[in-house]
Design a protein around this nucleic acid. Sequence first.
RNA 1: GGGCGAUUAACUCAGUUGGUUCAGAGUGCCUCCCUUACAAGGAGGAAGUCGGGGGUUCGAGUCCCUCAUUGCCCA
Length: 873
Amino acid sequence: MSITKTYDPKIAEEKWYAHWLEKGYFNSVPDDREPFTVVIPPPNVTGVLHMGHMLNNTIQDVLIRRSRMQGKNACWIPGTDHASIATEAKVVQKLKSEGVSKADLSREEFLGHAFEWKDKHGGIILEQLKKLGASCDWNRTHFTMDQSYSESVIDVFVDLFNKGKIYRGVRMVNWDPDALTAVSDEEVLHKEVNSKLFFVRYKVVGTQDEWLNIATTRPETIFGDTAICVNPSDDRYKSLHGKSIHVPLTDRTIPIVTDEYVDVEFGTGCLKITPAHDINDYEIGVKHNLDNINVFNDNGTLNAYGLHYEGIDRFEVRKQIEKELNEKGYLIKVEDHQNKVGYSERTNAVIEPKLSLQWFVNMKELSEPALENVMNGKIQFHPSKFKNTYRHWMENIKDWCISRQLWWGHRIPAFYYGKGTNDFVVAKTIEEAIEVASNKLGKSITKKDLRQDEDVLDTWFSSWLWPISVFDGLTKPNNEEINYYYPTNDLVTAPEIMFFWVARMIMAGYEYLDELPFRNVYFTGIVRDKLGRKMSKSLGNSPDPIELIHKFGADGVRVGVLISSPAGNDLPFDTSQCEQGRNFSNKLWNAYRLISSWEVKDIEQPASSAIAIDWFKNKFQKTLTELNELYDNYKISEALMVSYKLVWDDFCSWYLEIIKPGYQHPIDRKTLEQSVFLFNDVLKVLHPFMPFVTEELWHQLSDQKEDLVVSSWPDFSGFDEGVLSSFSSAAEIVSNVRNIRKQQSIGGKVKLELFYSGKYMGGKEFTSMIRKMGNLSVFESTAEKIGNSNGFIVDGIQFYIPFGDAVDVKAERAKLEQELEYSKGFLISVQKKLGNERFVNSAPTNVVENEKKKQADALLKISLIEEKLGNLN
RNA sequence: GGGCGAUUAACUCAGUUGGUUCAGAGUGCCUCCCUUACAAGGAGGAAGUCGGGGGUUCGAGUCCCUCAUUGCCCA
């Protein structure tokens, strides 16, 4: 045999991917077919493929390929995200390694380096996706900083500003004192740490010796205290309402205010309020109109407000101030305390909350249609449990801080002409800004009078437009493409970006196109290692997907990541799953190898082959309905498993074994032709999961004018449940025979005789199949009592394999007695149920009928076993 | 602290409205077999009081309460 014994993915993968591209199968243009659109969650432009991408993109490809085969105009838009923070960090790091500091560069110089970096590393990930088999329309590759995309981002900013939905305000940001920049919430890691809770006493103004005890984890911020807050209902402090208090170590006095926010149980029930250094304090400060005193320099040392601690680092101050407070009689006690502290993901510095002027989007109105249309099911979440989380977030939505103190990204189109907080205009270009500002000021100004905002926009402020802007839906409203492809169909993404991205795309969709951006959202899980840890680069526990593809083939890896990954559940990944996938590819390959090895002759078709074909046709149709249903419900892993069993168990273990001619015997033409036909259908349903091996076999198996990738998904034509159940009875008979062989240690080559009493309804086709699969010399009915034999019961018919003296009568008797006992126990339980009047009266009739049938079956079985026992010598 | 989930075989998971597709699948494990597609294989097998405890019901893996363990999101 010239065909290799195992499937070699390498050649097929390269060949077919190139072929598909050359034929342009993945390219889509609007036509009169129904569109099926998916936009890729754009990976970071400088990213490399990790296991999360593998899972995510395999699912998208499965959905896209199936839709394409269903005759839809499938369009999968690829692209990348500029990922401002991540990319800028990488560029800064790279420059640093070359001895260049970002601070020494101008904005233009830095951006030059950034684009250079992007051109070099950008899009590697897209090339890697091709290895996976992703059938994206590569002509439509987008980047969030492309010219027209950027325009739409700026347009949206200007538009929302003009609608009053974007405003500028003070807010607490996460300040990284090492990197000297604000970082986003996503870049702050909260860790549980052991710290200390300091109990400090503050003297009440106007009293000789009245003190208030306050618990704090940050005594160094005492210099920024601008109030003491107690719960208004706290009886301990009611007498102090409206009074003032001295701040220790300073000559300042501050008011005592009341707020429900204070937890009576925590610490002493008195909270010192430092509005400049804690987000909650800040909010209380706003409410009670308190001053903000910032006591820190940007590098985390204290400033002049820190008095004699000026210039000393915050943590050092904490140590020293503990000593001073103690010496001066302010410190009452110190307790150990566990709390959560935010650390910078990049520098590991403790994050300092800092007040600054930022840009915000008012989310209230935007969120309303977005919430409504998920809750009412117009946009479906899979699995639906995520609706709850979504609702909770949307109902408590906060304004969105969209400015970032970075250079890489879309620069905020705000232009300042003065120092006042309102001395600015928002405009798409500087030219427009000049005009708007001139009008506003009532005098003509020039370019050099304007200074553009230094900050860029949050990355999500561009990616929330992704499903719209990849079709230029904003820059060219109502163009043919946006009208055709939008709303898109399915979005496949991770639950952790449900708020950052999914929710905001929905908002943008309703705000700008008055329409949902996608109909279904499939949430994948997190890929974890065997120990349950999230796979990450820093842990080094993530296998390189490209190496996996080399080792197991793209199809094998695709199967490996899908096989145990229900929607919304984490995927505990192990390379052994890819091995299973590779073995599956190989199984398919060998099925083909077997069929192709047969010599064809115009001989009569065996009855067993005829029934096998009839059965498999029905079996396939039944499986097809299951598959379609599973797809409709986005149960992709289960669909794969169903396909896997169809191939392995039904097609290979049963079908091919039944039709397989004897060694060096030819096969009849009819059976071979039918087999090729059936195999092709199998390849079709398997193609979305395993595109390469199926395309290869599709062409190897028979001459095909059309490629599998663009062939049509099998039609549903119905199936006959009767044929399926007759077959499973026959298969059960065969299994029983095999089992007896096993128990008796009789090899498969030894022919056995099988008799049965009563009437076997299978007909000659099944008889022929059973004879072949059981390797029987005799399979017939007998009226004679068979004495020493091994037996079994299928469908109420007693089967015997006579062995005469060879039978271990004792063992057979024991086996039968055990069965008898079980059946009797079963009968009793059924009869008990039927004897219960309340059951018979309240249960639906079909349930009662069923119990009656169970009773009859059990009685029959018992009589058969008893008869058999009587016949044993 | 607030919210949302999860707990079914050694592992990973199915289990629609309570009752035959109810105790399932794949992997792993055990036994036998290198049989003429595939040992990356074949045939067979064992394995779970459905997290604990209560309750509703003729009937609970499924509904309710409670406890335990655990995950995620937000603060």
